[in-house]
């Protein structure tokens, strides 16, 4: 796209946008490195007078932060890999293959986006209890495999790639799976990246289900863990919460996905651009 605004206007606008969006996050960061008595004042001060890492030290000492971090990293990664396998195959079938009931089946899959998870949590818990899998990594990973958005995005991508390459491979006598594996999937790498990041983020941030299904620190994930010391709703908690520790926990939990996004953002934006959501 060609340039439609002047250089000066571009920089001014860019700074304004970045500042507006970034301010709340920077405030979180700034608070996490202030001593508590600087936090509790009523003045706005972005740069702490006294820089401290005491809140980070406190949460790492008082809570099994590293264990929770590992649990989150492990389950989010495993769930993402699972989704990549399941959704790329299903998305491919929905997009490029003819079979009875395809339209109806896809509609049923999509319609599950309309059911709030608050309704499905208890039946799902009963299921995992019957399977004997509550309070295990399995309970955190397996349900992600049923995710709908990933199938939707993969399907959109496969719809947009031209069929000629597949046809050529098929003429050469390759099986459907072989065509998928060696012709289609390599093309889909950007889309897979996009689905990977979206799945990773939603699993990483998931709160209600992990809260219900985990009991022990050896399985518990970061969002559930740090909720123990987040000052949810002022006055809801009896006793004064340390705001500094709340914010330190927030920064701690936000850092890994931010780092991952910064590394993958070029690929990600490119990835979604190739999903051909324009149809």
């Amino acid at each position: 796209m060609s340039r439609t605004i002047s250089r000066a206007a571009w920089y001014v606008l860019l700074v304004v946008v970045v500042a507006l969006v970034l301010a709340p996050a920077l405030w979180m960061l700034s608070t996490s490195i202030k001593p508590e008595r600087e936090i509790i004042t009523t003045q706005i001060r972005w740069i702490p007078q006294n820089f401290t890492v005491e809140h980070f030290q406190a949460i790492v000492q008082n809570y099994p932060m590293m264990q929770w971090l590992f649990n989150s990293l492990f389950t989010a990664t495993a769930a993402t890999l699972l989704v990549l396998v399941l959704d790329s195959m299903a998305g491919y079938a929905f997009a490029r293959m003819e079979f009875r009931g395809r339209g109806l089946l896809f509609m049923i899959v999509l319609s599950m986006l309309f059911v709030p998870i608050q309704i499905t949590v208890v039946p799902l818990f009963i299921l995992f209890s019957r399977l004997g899998l509550t309070d295990t990594y399995w309970a955190l990973i397996l349900p992600v495999g049923a995710n709908v958005t990933g199938v939707f995005l993969m399907r959109q991508f496969f719809l947009s790639i031209p069929g000629e390459l597949e046809e050529a491979a098929r003429v050469d006598g390759a099986s459907a799976f072989r065509v998928f594996w060696s012709v289609v999937l390599p093309l889909a790498r950007p889309a897979l990246t996009a689905v990977a990041i979206i799945t990773f983020l939603s699993t990483w941030n998931s709160f209600f289900w992990p809260l219900i299904v985990t009991r022990s620190d050896s399985v518990r994930t970061l969002p559930v863990g740090i909720a123990q010391f987040l000052s949810l709703r002022a006055g809801m908690v009896q006793g004064q919460m340390s705001i500094g520790q709340s914010m330190a926990g927030a920064v701690f939990a936000a850092l890994p996905p931010i780092v991952i996004f910064v590394i993958l953002q070029r690929y990600f934006i490119e990835g979604i651009s190739r999903t051909g959501i324009k149809g």
Partner: peptide
Amino acid sequence: GWTGPDGA
């Protein structure tokens, strides 16, 4: 439900 300092 002791999410305050009482939890510690």
